[in-house]
Computed example of a mutant assay.
Amino acid sequence: MESEHERSGDTVGVPVEDRRADRATEAFVAHRNLLFTVAYEMLGSAADAEDVLQETWLRWAGVELAAVRDPRAYLVRITTRQSLVRLRTLGRRKESYVGTWLPEPLLTAPDVAEDIELADSVSMAMMLVLETLTPTERAVFVLREVFDLPYEEIAEAVGKSPAAVRQITRRARAHVAARRPRGTVSPAETRDALQAFQRAAATGDLRGLLDILAPDVVFMGDGGGVRQAIPHPVTGARDVAGLLARLGRFSAPSLRPAHVNGYPALVLRVGGEVDTVVAVRIDDGLISGLYSVRNPAKLSHMRRVTTLCR
């Protein structure tokens, strides 16, 4: 039976199926940014997150909406399940990846940093920590710790009991806590560290680089076998500083600040196109991680701002 709204003048002559399709579209669009954020945090790949959203839409379009009590929870559940399927495919793809694999960087609006928990969860450093979790642990951690979903909803999304989800949450939380940056870093601290790094790299100032780099700093480069990049991570302040001093005099003057994955980063453009994105991790005021992404297939989301939300 049609509702009063469906019989009202603004829907006269519109087939019931069309009205249902409109409602499905409205609900999906309303939650699209949330669904993308969920998928991206689970996958570390914006391209794969977009594919997951396509799959989510196809399944959502076939759902009987009258039976759905909470469209947001239902859509998150579909997105999570599709992300888990995609994660296993990504795992096989990473095994044959040429060189170091890094998450796909996103150009984000400065206001993302205002939500500290969201910015921290999508930072390049945290995305790499999430890579060390199993697919199920990653899904549970993201849904609980980032999006604060009830255990019962997470259990439905991952096909586990609520009790099992609680155990997985504790295990994943401890795993992440042992590997995440040691303290919350403000965008201003990140920006200051980047500026100091850029000044030192631009002049080849080895002493200046050593002053801003943590003793156990790691430099990682991702060229995907398409662009030249450091084939293996370089660790230790002296080795990283030496590498940057050699490279920086050529590239540092052309690096420009941008907000990437919720935090300030540096972007190199060549001929108007993004060539390299350099994100950082900071611990105790020093740069402990430098992540340089050059693979062209991973730079498409640097052309426009991606809206993230919880």
Rank of each mutant, 00 (worst) to 15 (best):
P187H: 06
V176A: 03
Q195V: 15
R182A: 13
T184E: 07
P181Q: 02
E189G: 02
P181A: 07
R170E: 07
P181W: 07
T169G: 12
I168K: 00
P187V: 06
R171A: 12
E189C: 03
R166L: 02
Q167E: 11
I168N: 02
R180W: 08
T169K: 13
S186T: 15
A188P: 11
P181I: 08
E189M: 06
A174C: 06
E189S: 07
R171Q: 13
S186F: 09
A177R: 12
Q167A: 13
R179Y: 04
E189A: 08
T190H: 05
R180H: 11
L194A: 01
R170V: 03
P181G: 05
R173M: 04
T184Y: 08
A193Q: 05
A188D: 13
L194M: 02
H175W: 05
A172F: 00
A193T: 05
I168A: 00
T169S: 15
R170S: 03
R166A: 14
H175Q: 06
R191A: 14
S186K: 10
S186R: 11
R182I: 15
R182L: 11
A177V: 13
R180V: 15
A177C: 05
D192N: 12
V176P: 03
A172P: 03
A177L: 09
A178I: 07
T169A: 14
R179L: 04
R182G: 15
A188Y: 10
Q167Y: 09
A193Y: 06
G183W: 07
I168S: 01
Q195S: 14
A178N: 09
A172W: 00
A172D: 00
R182E: 14
R171T: 15
E189T: 15
H175G: 01
T184M: 04
D192G: 10
L194F: 02
R170H: 04
R171S: 13
A172K: 00
R166I: 04
R166S: 13
R180L: 09
H175N: 01
R171Y: 04
R170K: 03
R179M: 08
A177E: 12
A174Y: 05
Q195E: 15
R182P: 12
R170D: 01
T169F: 10
A188W: 09
A188C: 09
A193C: 07
L194D: 07
A174V: 07
R173Q: 09
A174P: 01
R170A: 03
R170G: 01
E189K: 03
R182N: 11
P181R: 06
E189L: 00
R191K: 14
A193R: 11
A174H: 06
R180K: 14
R180F: 08
R191S: 14
A177H: 05
P187D: 12
T190E: 05
T184N: 09
G183I: 07
D192W: 09
T169D: 14
R166M: 07
H175K: 05
R180M: 11
S186A: 13
Q195T: 15
P187T: 14
R173A: 02
R182C: 12
A188N: 10
T169H: 13
G183D: 09
R180D: 09
A174E: 04
R173S: 02
L194W: 00
A174N: 07
V176I: 02
